[in-house]
Design a binder for these strands. Structure first.
Length: 472
RNA sequence: GGUGCCGUACCCAAGUGGUAAGGGACAGGUCUGCAAAACCUCUAUGCACCGGUUCGAAUCCGGUCGGCACCUCCA
């Protein structure tokens, strides 16, 4: 299977060719663990998971590295920003490391529930301060830095290619249009590599460095850790679309200034989840979490299905109505698979027709991860009358290696054991009434059962009771 | 102020020159004592609007209106 990906650097879809033949080195920007991930954040990790699985499926061995940003970052280069880790710490009275651990665990709990494969390496910023310092020293030796006002800055004017990823026009860019410019900077786009000044007393996260006690700047961790684990040049770097202009632009500058080599070959960015008020943002205060979706009766797979229904480079419009539509679709899919599992065995040899569906699926996914089309192929395949049930199952399981619903784990039989005894009693009374053709009584009993939240289905053989709700 | 993206049915959404994928919802049908489920069928002569290029445009070009994002930590 061939894979092509939209590379932000070239703004075009390029055939994917890793540096090493069958080995892919991929770095994904991870979470800042001062709060829960919201569903917009999670959308990006789902897209990255589809990418990861597509590469796995295509036969590549993928080394997937993700950072955990457990260092607090200021909201600006000036000293008037706020450190979010510290802020959360002060608000809750908990130790910053404890907070980081808590939200890291929460993050992986969410991603596990969404069937997002864990990275090969998840590296914490606080455990790689020495690697960051070494990189800053390297930049310093090469003359890319200056020291001013207590901070070490990267000088973008020493790096000729600055802004290529974002296609920044430095002459026309109005830095400081929305924020005051740090007076220590020689160029408004310069950024801090190492802070030694902080207005915060009780700054909990401080490390010794050649420039004094302090903490690293925002961008250095990704450069330092990615090169530490993946080498000075690697294949893929992904993240949210918001990172193009600043974070990734600065990462490229400091990485390539240090090594003199192309750092990353493919830049892949995921678009935002938006709702009627615009993008979801932690700083806006209120935001939706996976936990909240679950409390509303949704299954994590409903959200995965919802995300897969849209292309990763398009904004996705969230609404409860849209999520409910996805939940219905996902439930129908799972029930379809469950019924196939009940009747069919797993086919090992696929017919030509079945193979065609697989090929279509692979073509779509290989073409810049067109997962919505992949999902459409899955549905067409399931509704194709010329395929046997066992072939359908085999096809679905194969596609699921990328879609990641874990279809093989669906339980073929609805949870009859969890139906309370009194409900089962009512159902058997109704069956008895039906046998006596007392339909009035039977309908009354059904109404009672439905009132209690259960659903009755009469099949030719037996009467099936199941929970009546929008979750599986 | 600068830059980029988008506007497709009731909802979500795919589709970048060859005659509108898919899912959900709705409606009809088969089945059923009736339901439910399942299965089948149906839903945009039209893709924000106006003009242009072309044999042919949702797709390319120009303009208008509307929405979103980035330029501040944020996926």
């Amino acid at each position: 299977m061939n894979v092509s990906l939209f590379n932000t650097m070239s703004r075009s879809i390029e055939p994917f060719e890793p540096i090493s033949n069958s080995f892919v080195r991929m770095y994904c920007c991870g979470p800042t663990v001062y709060n829960f991930a919201h569903i917009g954040n999670l959308r990006t990790y789902i897209f990255e998971d589809i990418l990861r699985r597509t590469l796995d499926y295509s036969g590549y061995e993928v080394k997937h590295v993700m950072n955990i940003t457990d260092v607090g970052h200021l909201t600006g280069d000036n000293d008037d920003g706020e450190d979010k880790m510290l802020k959360t710490s002060q608000e809750t009275g908990r130790d910053v490391y404890e907070i980081a651990r808590f939200y890291t665990d929460a993050f992986f709990s969410d991603t596990d529930e969404l069937h997002i494969l864990r990275p090969s390496i998840a590296c914490k910023a606080t455990e790689h301060i020495d690697v960051m310092i070494a990189l800053i020293q390297r930049l310093e030796k090469l003359g890319h830095t200056y020291f001013a006002g207590g901070n070490v800055y990267f000088s973008i004017d020493t790096f000729s290619d600055y802004g290529r990823l974002a296609r920044l026009n430095l002459d026309e860019l109005q830095s400081g249009a929305r924020i005051d410019i740090d007076p220590n900077k020689r160029n408004p786009k310069d950024f801090v590599l190492w802070f030694t000044k902080s207005k915060f007393e009780n700054q909990a996260m401080l490390w010794d460095s050649p420039w004094g006690v302090g903490y690293p700047g925002w961008h250095i961790e990704c450069s330092a850790m990615s090169m530490h684990y993946l080498g000075e040049s690697f294949d893929i770097h992904c993240g949210g679309i918001d990172h193009i202009g600043v974070h990734h632009t600065n990462e490229i500058a400091q990485s390539e200034a240090a090594t003199g080599k192309t750092w990353v070959n493919y830049w892949i960015h995921g678009e935002f989840l938006v709702n009627d008020t615009g993008k979801m943002s932690k700083s806006k205060g209120e935001f939706l979490t996976l936990q909240l979706l679950k409390e509303q009766g949704f299954d994590p797979m409903d959200y995965r299905y919802f995300c897969i229904g849209g292309h990763y480079r398009s904004q996705l419009q969230f609404s409860w109505e849209a999520l409910q539509a996805a939940a219905n679709g996902r439930k129908n899919l799972f029930e379809k698979i469950a019924s196939l599992m009940k009747q069919a065995s797993y086919a090992h040899n696929l017919s030509d027709q079945a193979k065609q569906y697989i090929e279509q699926f692979e073509t779509f996914l290989g073409n810049d991860l067109n997962a919505p089309r992949g999902l459409a192929v899955l549905w067409s395949m399931l509704r194709d009358k010329t395929l046997s049930d066992s072939e359908k199952l085999a096809c679905a399981f194969q596609m699921d290696r990328i879609l990641g619903f874990n279809l093989a784990e669906i339980k073929p039989i609805v949870d009859e054991v969890s139906i309370p005894q009194n409900i089962l009693e009512l159902v058997s009374q109704r069956t008895e009434a039906k046998r006596n053709k007392n339909y009035k009584r039977a309908d009354e009993l059904r109404a009672i059962v439905e009132e209690a939240g259960y659903q009755i289905k009469d099949t030719p053989g037996e009467t099936i009771v199941s929970r009546r709700c929008n979750q599986n």
